[in-house]
Amino acid sequence: MSLDESVTATDHDVTTPVTSHEREEGRRSHSLLTGSDRRTLTLMTAVPSFLHIALVWIPAIGTFILSFTNWNGVRWSSLKWVGFRNYEQLFTVFEKDLYESLFNNLWVMVALFFLGTPLGMLIAYILDRNLKGSAIYQSIFYTPVVLSLAVVGFIWRSVIYSPGQGILNSVLGRTEPGNQIDWLGNPDFLIPITSEYGLSKNFMALIAAMIWVHVGYVMVLYLAGLKSVDPNLREAAAIDGANEWQVFRQVIFPAMKPVNIVIMVITVITSLRVFDIIDVLNNPIGTDVLSILVTDNILGESGNVGRGSAYGVMLLLVCFGFAIIYLRNAFGEED
C-alpha cells in the first residue's frame, strides 16, 4: 500500500483532480499507470465513445434542431425555420394525438410494471427451486423474446385476435356474425380517465401481446440474478421461521437490488420505446404511442420531419426524465 500511495501522490495532477480522488486512492490503482498505459486507456474509451456520440447523440441533437423547422426530409433548400410552431401545434391541433400517446405509453409502463415484470419475477423465483422440467418451462417462456416481431404481429393479429378465424373467439364461441368480439378494433375504454382519454380495450389487447414477450425477458434476467444469491441466506431465514413471502420480501429481494434496477430500467425503456409490436399489429385506432407518431411523421411519405422531430423531442424529454431519476439512484450513492 505504501508504494501505491507514494506513486499516487506524484501522479495526481495527470489523471484525476486531487479533491475528488482523495477518498479513492489506495482502493483504485490507476496511479500506477505508465504513459503508454494511459494512452491505451484513453484509446479504449475514446473509440467507442466517439462512435456512440457520433451515431447516437449527434443525431439526437440534430432531431432537436430539426424540430424548429418545417423540413420535408429531402431538399435542404425547402427547409424553413418556424420557431416553436411545431410544438404549438402539438398542444393545439394535434393535442389529442399527443395526449393519447402519452397515456398509452404510460399504460404500457403500468402494465409491464405491475403485471409483466412481477409475473416474470415470480416464474423465475419458482424455477430457481430446482423444479423438474425447469429447462422446458424456461424455453417456453423465453421463446417469445427471440421471435421476430413480424411473426409476433402475425400470431396475435391473425391466429389469436382475428374476429372470425382467431383462436380466442373460437374458444369463446363468439364466431357468429354479430357476436364476434373485435379485439383489435374496439377503442372503447376499459378504464376511462376522462371522456377523451383512458385505457382502450384494443390497447389492452396489444398490451397482452407485449406482456407475452416481456415476461420471458424478465424471467431470464431474474433467474440469472437469483443464481447469484447465496442459498445459505434462504436457509437461515427459513430456520428462523420466516414464511416464503417473508423470505422473498426481506432476504431475496433486497439481495437482488442490482438486478432489480436493471429490470426496472429495462421495463421503463421497453414501455417508452414500444413501437414494433404496435406497428406490426397495424396500429389500430386509439393505439398511437409517441414512437409511432415520430415514425409516421419523420419517415412517412410526406416527410414531415419538423413535426415528427417535435414528437421525437417530447419522447426524448420523457426518456430523460426517467434517465435522470434512474441515474440519480444508480450513481448518486457512489459520490
Partner: peptide, 22 residues
Amino acid sequence: HQTGANGRTWQEGAAALETGEC
C-alpha cells in the same frame, strides 16, 4: 354492414364473401 370492422383484415372480409356470410 358487418360490425367490428376496425379489427378485421380485408382478407377476412373476402373470406366472409366467399362463405356467403356477407
